[in-house]
Write a protein that binds this DNA or RNA. Structure first.
Length: 413
RNA sequence: CGGGGCAUAGUGUAACGGCAGCACGAGUCCUUUGGGAGGAUUUAGUUCCAGUUCGAAUCUGGGUGCCCCGACCA
């Protein structure tokens, strides 16, 4: 991508109505645009990041056997009445059609769609187990949208639903997906600071777990167990005296963002909709369900909250919109064009700053946008038949022979 | 939903109740090019509705929007 063609511009200062770091940096750098509180447009740069996250999640969900599909956001009132959530779920978007006067919900989650749907397909023990997932826009009428991408009213979520005959199978699969989630957080660069916690929701049990990423801007408080990759939610600390043999008083208090949440739904929804299966003797039993969610924008927001400095974003390699930011300084247009074409041919994702602006502006924008590798080509570097490579997370760069980069970027850098 | 705050050009910020100004951005021209360059010139704004007043960005009332704290968060 030639930066001169990119229609978004960077902003020197953040809009004054954004205080969260993720929103400030993502808006300034031109990744997102706020349409209203809790609702953002993903601009070209942001969309590339979104696609990266999406593909990582897709790979891992497919890896645990999830079959991808797509369910509707627009949903009938009836299904929500069946589970009682039309009245009980306070952040459910509900509205009436102007013409037909029918009531609709905008899906905040999809148990009300997927459970009755599966009645068509689940009949006998032979049909179980399996899981499906989608990556789709959710709507939640949050009383208070906040912190940029961390809590929106419209956001893209990956939701996986699994269907089982037995509790044992359900529990085993639950663990399998939890492992896949750990891999996802590792791949997006948050592995070291993301904790698998027992959630506070509902009964104190193993019904539900959260993945909490440590960061100062987090809205949750968790207690971590020293030396172990374990953490507990605040509410549970109050209820329990010890946790994995550690006295509650000795747990370390930390702030975190809830980046994912998984639930054992048991038979709650299958009972509501009559989703059942027949065993070998023909006996009818309720299907056991689990669900597993990750909010994509929130995950991106969390990554920015964790990886940034004064100058801007520092993308983990797997999420960066481009692998390389190629910057050409005055008088090197020909060489830079040639290198850009070669890199594109080699399949390298490159943002090429070919704009006619001052070097300082190019460097400042590169730092703000936060692509991991920066290549600068200038008359200085060309004197040494070289190009300067600087990593976004390092202070100093180094010279690399330009011919080698022409031959193979991957082998050289 | 309770509490607090804010609303002026694309962005950031000024203006006693009396001509809406500055910077950045954007456009044009010239010069400049290793850490947000300089000159000339152009462009664009008072959240909405009422009220008070000779006169309102400014005062009053209401609406709307946004931010923050709390509550909530399948």
């Amino acid at each position: 991508m030639r930066q001169s063609q990119l229609f978004t511009k960077t902003l020197r200062s953040a809009p004054k109505d954004e205080e969260s770091i993720n929103a400030q940096l993502l808006i300034r750098a031109g990744f997102i645009h706020k349409e209203m509180a809790g609702v953002y447009t993903f601009l070209p740069l942001g969309f590339l990041v979104l696609r990266k996250v999406e593909n990582i999640i897709r790979e891992e969900m497919t890896g645990v056997g999830g079959m991808e599909m797509l369910m509707p956001s627009l949903q009938p009132k009836k299904n929500w009445e069946t589970t009682g959530r039309w009245d009980d779920l306070d952040n459910l978007f509900r509205f009436k059609s102007f013409y037909s006067k029918n009531d609709y919900a905008l899906g905040p989650t999809h148990e009300e769609i997927v459970t009755p749907l599966m009645k068509r397909y689940i009949v006998s023990y032979k049909d179980l187990p399996f899981s499906i997932f989608q990556i789709q826009t959710k709507f939640r009428d949050e009383k208070r949208a906040k912190a940029g991408l961390l809590r929106g009213r419209e956001f893209i979520m990956k939701d996986l639903y699994s269907f089982h005959a037995t509790e044992k199978d359900s529990n085993e699969y639950y663990e399998k997906v939890a492992q896949a989630y750990k891999t996802i957080f590792k791949r997006v660069g948050l592995g070291d600071i993301t904790y698998y916690t027992t959630a506070s929701g509902g009964t104190f049990s193993d019904y539900s777990h959260e993945f909490q990423t440590l960061t100062e801007s987090g809205e949750d408080t968790i207690y971590t167990v020293k030396g172990k990759k374990l953490a507990v939610n605040q509410e549970i600390v109050k209820e329990e005296k010890t946790w994995f043999g550690v006295p509650s008083a000795k747990l370390k208090k930390e702030k975190a963002i809830e980046v994912a949440n998984i639930f054992k739904l048991k038979t709650k929804y299958s009972k509501a909709f009559g989703l059942q299966w027949r065993d070998k003797k023909g006996k009818v039993q309720d299907v056991i369900m689990n669900c597993y969610g990750i909010g994509l924008p929130r995950l991106i927001g969390a990554v920015v909250e964790v990886f940034h400095d004064k100058e801007g974003i520092i993308w983990p390699e797997n999420l960066a919109p481009y692998a390389v930011h190629l910057i050409s300084l005055k008088g090197t247009e020909k060489e830079a064009d040639r290198l850009y074409d070669d890199l594109v041919k080699q399949g390298v994702e490159v943002l090429y700053d070919d704009r006619d602006v001052s070097p300082g502006e190019k460097f400042a924008d590169a730092d703000l946008i936060g692509i991991p590798k920066r290549l600068v080509i200038s008359s200085k570097t060309l004197e040494k038949d070289s190009i300067e490579l600087k990593m976004r997370n390092k202070v100093k760069g180094k010279l690399v022979k330009i011919e080698k980069v022409h031959e193979s970027f991957k082998k050289t850098i």
